[in-house]
Design a protein around this nucleic acid. Structure first.
Lengths: 325, 325
DNA sequence: TTGAAAGCGCTACCAG
DNA sequence: CTGGTAGCGCTTTCAA
């Protein structure tokens, strides 16, 4: 690879002039000409390692998240990457697979690799652990989808409680009174909020809460699948089920199918996130749809503002979900 | 941030000793002790920029792909990231959204950001353009899912032709003779191969090819959706449709639903990639399922071998698809 | 085993 | 506007 030195020699100017040219400074037209030619001839590109060392920045943003198979995450990441790239940043992505040890390790890994900022969907890390890992670095962080209580910084969330409240209310308005919920681990921020919306909807409609109808476990296919079995085995099974996550919804519907349960006649289902599925099923399965693209844009913009020196107090945005269809 | 100098001073040894300690060299036990303490006290971590400059490597792998919303891509990326990380690499991901200009730009972007290797799902770039961008860099590249003809290097593909051949044969065995196909752009590698499998299946079963029944357009929801309309509007519509991509499949099924077309009674459908969806539908929609995890593992391993100095001839692996259910 | 010193390629300061 | 030069923090000889 050609270096800045080679270009300087070939163009007959000094290194500093090349550097200035590369960084958009003023250079005499005849020199510009010579420099351009030299760069083209040598196929010169600035060495990013040297530049990073000098300016102590990498223009890379860490994105730390638990999963990427579910379309929700993929779409959020695409949106993040697109916006970040428009501002000259690139995405360093790290998936920890809902594994506590990996969440820690991958965060450390990102940090020790010189990211300028972090976009983070947390799961099990505590506030103390987070600060222990990041304290001496001080890079701006934007949490999305979920937050670690106590961690300062911007956050982009959705109105989980409200969306679930409305969804469950719809089920109630259809006449259901025994409505189950299958949700993620109670320790996970979104699961907690979604469960809250469910409880509030029941209570506002004077329906007594029955803890047999609340299943909380991993955000996974198996949880929905086994949840279906459990609920059907109840002495007084629910007539409707609300699921709070893509994988859980699919697991539930699959189990119901295998048992010949008709949806919605035998068991009504209201899901989360599975917009594709919702349009495919007959009749369409109603779901809560999150604004993935907007989440990514908002979070990326927050981070870019911080990176640009903005120093206001932490901001939290709550984006609205939409019930579909 | 503390530097190696600070640690050296506090531990009372030289910089070189710290460096050796950090890189696993032999250091006298009493010094190890002092160094450990100093590192802990200062919360020292090696500056990645300086290290990268010195060794001219970043341990980062570029992953360039057209999309990430479809679960196929998300799962492949997770698998890649997991394997790469086990070897101390991290993933620099860049999504170009089936946009020719972006494909070029993002490739350039990755390269100018010092990746050590590249994993690439190409679409519109030509062999010449690829080499023009990468020639003077010479980083190992593994192409997955699709290849640019003429580009040397390892590749991990699936047996597109064979999988489609079998899938279409199943439709034929069920008695269909008018079988349509909705596929991606003919310029895209996978679309070509899949179309080939379709044609071969027809011809092997003595079914005449009818080009009214072949629709080729973007790999997108709209293609499937409009394709359904087009096919239904035919004087002699098909009784079965094969779709070669997740988005296309969903578009087709959605359009059929809206028109009250029953699947499979009114129109049989065989899809691609939508494994989740396939299990949700009643009856399950048969699909070609690609081994996403294995694709990622194989590609990552190929790349790591090259990075480790392996210098054998280019390898191409064809992984088997599975028909589901 | 240890330490001194020479860069890696670039940016940015300062003098001209 | 231009060029000389001092590092950025680390790895890696080479002697001791």
């Amino acid at each position: 690879m050609a270096t800045i030195k080679d270009v300087a020699r070939m163009a007959g100017v000094s290194i500093s002039t090349i550097s200035k040219y590369m960084n958009g400074g003023n250079v005499r037209p005849e020199n510009v000409q010579a420099i351009r030619e030299a760069i083209a001839k040598l196929d010169y590109r600035a060495n990013p390692f040297a530049r990073n060392l000098k300016i102590q920045r990498s223009r890379s943003i860490g994105i730390l998240l638990p999963d990427m198979a579910a379309p929700f995450y993929g779409t959020v990441v695409m949106s993040l990457d697109k916006t970040l790239r428009e501002f000259g940043y690139h995405s360093l992505i790290s998936v920890y697979g809902s594994n506590y040890g990996l969440e820690r390790d991958n965060l450390r890994f990102l940090i020790t690799n010189g990211i300028d900022g972090l976009i983070y969907i947390p799961e099990d890390l505590t506030c103390e652990e987070f600060y222990e890992l990041t304290a001496s670095i001080g890079i701006p962080t934007v949490q999305i989808d979920r937050v670690i209580p106590g961690v300062a910084g911007d956050a982009v969330l959705v109105d989980n409680g409200e969306a679930v409240y409305q969804a469950v209310s719809r089920l109630i308005e259809k006449g259901h009174t025994r409505i189950a919920i299958i949700t993620g681990p109670k320790s996970v921020f979104t699961a907690k909020e979604r469960l809250g919306g469910y409880l509030r909807a029941l209570s506002d409609h004077d329906i007594l809460f029955d803890d047999e109808l609340v299943i909380s476990d991993q955000n996974a296919f198996a949880t929905g699948y086994r949840g279906c079995e459990t609920l059907l085995g109840l002495a007084d099974p629910p007539t409707a089920v609300f699921t709070t996550n893509y994988d859980i919804t699919i697991g539930l519907v699959t189990a119901a199918r295998e048992r010949g349960i008709h949806i919605p006649e035998d068991m009504d289902v209201f899901g989360f996130d599975c917009v594709d599925v919702c349009t495919m099923m007959k009749p369409p399965l109603p779901v809560v749809h999150q604004p993935e693209v907007e989440i990514g844009q908002t979070a990326a913009n927050y981070l870019i503002e911080r990176l640009g020196g903005y120093d206001g107090p932490p901001r939290t945005t709550r984006l609205k979900c939409r019930l579909a269809p």
